[in-house]
Design a binder for these strands. Structure first.
Length: 218
DNA sequence: AAGTGACC
DNA sequence: TCCT
């Protein structure tokens, strides 16, 4: 039984070589799967102090993805725009600390992608329910000399990978439980997004997908 | 400006 | 294509 659960947990072997999307950007299949149960527990603990919330967008809409953060700051959206803030606007408290094990894993997978010495100071935690999506965007609010490390857990999603111009053609890349994406260098400002999540059940996360993105903001 | 955008 |  435990063996079978592990097989379901590890959607991909963790030892595969990087699949390069572009210069500086790759997918590491399954490299976080072995840490999934511990990390989902960490997400639940962080969410008790800094609850998941859907944020308003400057244009008057609402994000479909629920977010929380940990580390030295968190990403926030409201009517005034997008920015990183050192305190959770909802509680007034500092964001929960970035767990050492999370930081070490991000450093390790970044090194696997060719980014030695990456030390993130912020982790954004995105919670996707069926239908939730992330429109095409660039990650511009952080240091551009550091990569972004993205870990996927739970339900599969279609990652849209474009180019440096919004209108560039999109590649659709399935991201499964435990998959890692790293992008930096010449790919740091590539437009990317997530297609609307398809409903399903995952043995570790139930009806959800969690995406953890590690960045260097300060 | 990362939008269950809004509008054409 | 516009808007915030």
């Amino acid at each position: 039984m435990a063996q079978q659960e592990f097989a379901l947990d590890a959607s991909q072997p963790a030892s595969t070589a990087p699949e390069w999307l572009d210069t500086g950007a790759c997918v590491l299949r399954g490299h976080a799967a072995g840490h999934a149960v511990e990390m989902i527990g960490g997400i639940r603990r962080i969410a008790r102090a800094a609850p998941f919330r859907r944020m308003p967008t400057p244009g008057g809409g609402m994000m479909s993805v629920a977010m929380t953060c940990c580390g030295a700051g968190g990403w926030c959206s409201d009517a005034d725009g997008y920015r990183y803030v050192a305190h959770d606007p909802r509680t007034g408290q500092p964001w929960p600390p970035l767990p050492d094990m999370w930081r070490d894993l991000a450093t390790h997978v970044a090194a696997c992608a060719g980014y030695a010495g990456f030390v993130p100071d912020v982790c954004l935690i995105n919670g996707y329910r069926p239908g939730a999506r992330m429109g095409l965007h660039q990650d511009r609010g952080e240091r551009l000399d550091a990569p972004v490390v993205s870990l996927s857990f739970g339900l599969p999603a279609i990652f849209q990978w474009g180019g440096l111009q919004r209108g560039d053609p999109l590649r659709r890349i399935p991201l499964l439980h435990g998959d890692v994406v790293v992008w930096g260098g010449p790919s740091r400002l590539v437009f990317h997004g997530i297609a609307p999540l398809r409903a399903g059940q995952h043995p570790v996360t139930g009806p959800c997908r969690y995406n953890l993105t590690f960045r260097r903001v300060w």
